[in-house]
Each structure stands twice: as C-alpha cells, then as structure tokens.
C-alpha cells in the first residue's frame, strides 16, 4: 500500500499511517509542527489552521487522505517568507500578540485573506479572520495590524 505523499513547508514527505488520521495530530506528532495548535478539534476556533494548496483549512477537520499530493504550509514554513515579515512588523507595532495561542492560525488566515484580496476593507478583514477565535485582544489590534500590513506590503500580495 502506498503512503500519503505531500509537501510540508516545501519538503516532500510521505505519511504511512491511516488516511483517517487527523492532519492536526499528524503535523504535531509526526512532523513536529507544534505551531499548529489544538484549541477544540471541532473546526470552531481556527487555532489549527494551515494552508493546503494556498487554501486556509482547519487541520483538525482534515483527514490525511485528503492531502495526498497537496502542498501544506504551516507557520514553521510561512515564518520564513517576506510576507510574514510584513505581518510580523505590523503585529509587533500594535502589540497585537497577547497569549499567542491563536496567532499562528490567525496569521495564516490573514495570509489567505490578503492572497485573495490584497486591499481588504476593515469589514473584509473581520470577515476573513472570523473563523479564528482570540480571547485576549478584542480583535482590534489584530484587525488593524492586518490593515497596516496590507498597506505596507503593497505589491507583495
């Protein structure tokens, strides 16, 4: 039986476990991607969000069999990009990171949003981040940071 092959942050890997296993568990356990956080395992908080072929998915709600042939990006890979650097500065400037647990998923949600819509309105940002719960910030700082990143990163997205 063949394994499940995919690229993880640009690296080709093959998973030989069950196709029914959760992507979230596999990323954390087998590939050490602990930036992918488990907040609920029900698709209701966004802490485990990753990019699969550029699309934002909650990795708790993805079975391994569904990522055969896909390109997966987690914060471990994304944090090395130029786009991340722009978001990083914007979040830092507004002290938008508090406990940090929602942040990897939140930042990937911001990336997914900006990739689709490089100049979103505030309402579009709020909608784009609406699947990622944050209990610390009240969201203002995060939303403003994404807005600033969109301005600063002109051309990157």
């Amino acid at each position: 039986m063949n394994g499940i092959s995919f690229t993880l942050n640009g690296r080709e890997v093959t998973y030989t476990g069950s196709a029914a296993d959760r992507l979230l568990d596999v990323l954390r356990r087998d590939y050490g991607c602990t930036s992918v956080k488990c907040g609920c395992k029900e698709g209701e908080c966004g802490a485990c969000a990753v990019l699969v072929d550029g699309v934002l998915l909650n990795s708790c709600c993805v079975a391994m069999g569904a990522v055969d042939g896909a390109a997966i990006v987690t914060m471990e890979g994304y944090c090395k990009t130029e786009r991340f650097a722009v978001l990083d500065r914007a979040f830092a400037d507004l002290s938008a990171v508090q406990c940090g647990f929602c942040i990897p998923g939140m930042v990937l949600a911001a990336e997914a949003l900006l990739a689709k819509n490089p100049h979103p309105t505030e309402a579009e940002i709020r909608e784009g981040l609406s699947g990622n719960l944050c209990r610390c910030t009240g969201y203002n700082a995060i939303v403003n940071a994404v807005e600033n990143a969109a301005k600063e990163g002109n051309g990157l997205w």
């Binding site: 602990t34 930036s35 914060m75 471990e76 944090c79 979040f91 940090g100 942040i103």
Partner: peptide, 18 residues
C-alpha cells in the same frame, strides 16, 4: 515591541502540549 512577540508570532513558543 513586546519581548515575547517574536517567538509567539512565529509559532516557536512551546506550550505544555508542545
């Protein structure tokens, strides 16, 4: 810039489950 910004922002911070 908050002192814990960089590790949290990049997902490097180790929480107990990590």
């Amino acid at each position: 810039v908050k002192k814990d910004h960089a590790p949290k922002m990049s997902g490097r911070s180790i929480y107990v489950s990590d």
